[in-house]
Nucleic acid binder design. Sequence first.
DNA 1: GGTTAAATGGACCGTACGGTCCAAAAATGG
DNA 2: CCATTTTTGGACCGTACGGTCCATTTAACC
Lengths: 204, 204
Amino acid sequence: MDCTVQNAGMQTGRPLEFDPQLALDAAMGVFWQRGFEATSLSDLLAAMGLSKSSFYNAFGSKQQLFEACLVRFRGRHVERMREMLRSAASALAFVREMLLTNAREAREPGPRRGCLIMNTATEFAGRDAAVAACVADAARDFAGVFRTAIEMAREHGEIPREADPEVLARYLLTTMAGLRTMVKAGLPADELEKVVEVAMGALH
Amino acid sequence: MDCTVQNAGMQTGRPLEFDPQLALDAAMGVFWQRGFEATSLSDLLAAMGLSKSSFYNAFGSKQQLFEACLVRFRGRHVERMREMLRSAASALAFVREMLLTNAREAREPGPRRGCLIMNTATEFAGRDAAVAACVADAARDFAGVFRTAIEMAREHGEIPREADPEVLARYLLTTMAGLRTMVKAGLPADELEKVVEVAMGALH
DNA sequence: GGTTAAATGGACCGTACGGTCCAAAAATGG
DNA sequence: CCATTTTTGGACCGTACGGTCCATTTAACC
């Protein structure tokens, strides 16, 4: 990130040999799967394909990299949510699909990663203010998309007019976080899908 | 634990100088607050007031101690839930109170610990089978109490007769986990209390 | 008070951690 | 092909990790 900015202005000399964005993605994957504490520097170097020097040149420190990953994750997933909302048959259909997507991680074969933001809220947010801020920002963004969906649903009469979009949005975010936790706790996907239907019942 | 069992049979020689249960409680507190990875052996020794030798004599290893803490936490909190249910004005009142208790952690001044079981599900359960089993067992117990409450509520006509207690119980557990995550993410208590009311709406 | 069994403090183990530093290599612009 | 600028690998830093070991102390039983 730093280096990108530096090089943007005027560069002579050897250009970067790796793609910082790609390296960031790789790092994000590791953090996502293992969390901050359990991820060692070597884990990161291996995943990113960097030497230690390049790593510190480009990303500063483990924690700075982590924060960059949080920001990247947030941006990417908020965008994905917005796309889902745009292409959904209805606002409520989007909400259901969103929750189901979370529940269905339990069906995937590999390890359960959950959501990087929620994982971080649980593991790390209490100990570092900067990280806590990243998490809070991301949570606000996610809730914002839900809020938009709720407002749309209200316009279309899918949910009662007196519903409070802000509260319902936070409720949906809460449910999402809960689903991810239950996936990690080992509940099977089909039971979580039933839970989603119950959760949807709170909207009308 | 080991030593307790050993000593139970027939002991001559010096008796234990610390209370294993108390030490276990102290360790649980540290793990609860910081998680497994972020808790160092010295943290544990300081909190438990033990020397390294006594620690390993009595508890085997950091991870064995952690699993013992999980079991203890589970037992204690399931019992606490059962008590709450017993002394509640109604089954639904218990459910509401339970969720509100989780939401209100956001109002407490100190650091947010969440629920040791949920924290562990998020941080650690994916990496160790024994720990995952502890988490799954605890989740089943918690859900069991909710299930009992739902069945009682159904008997008393507080919720529709056609409700599925098993699914609703899992829904409540999911909501609980979500609330704890949102507390850690920094949402204020009064907003989470509104979320609880929305969540209760899914029961009827 | 001797014997015995267990707990105790503290030295010690190798390893891995996150992070720094530097000399050498390499790719661009002129 | 030279000069410049940056990357690069790898040596190196001190620290802390989780865990082992042992000589000593301690308390209970006879």
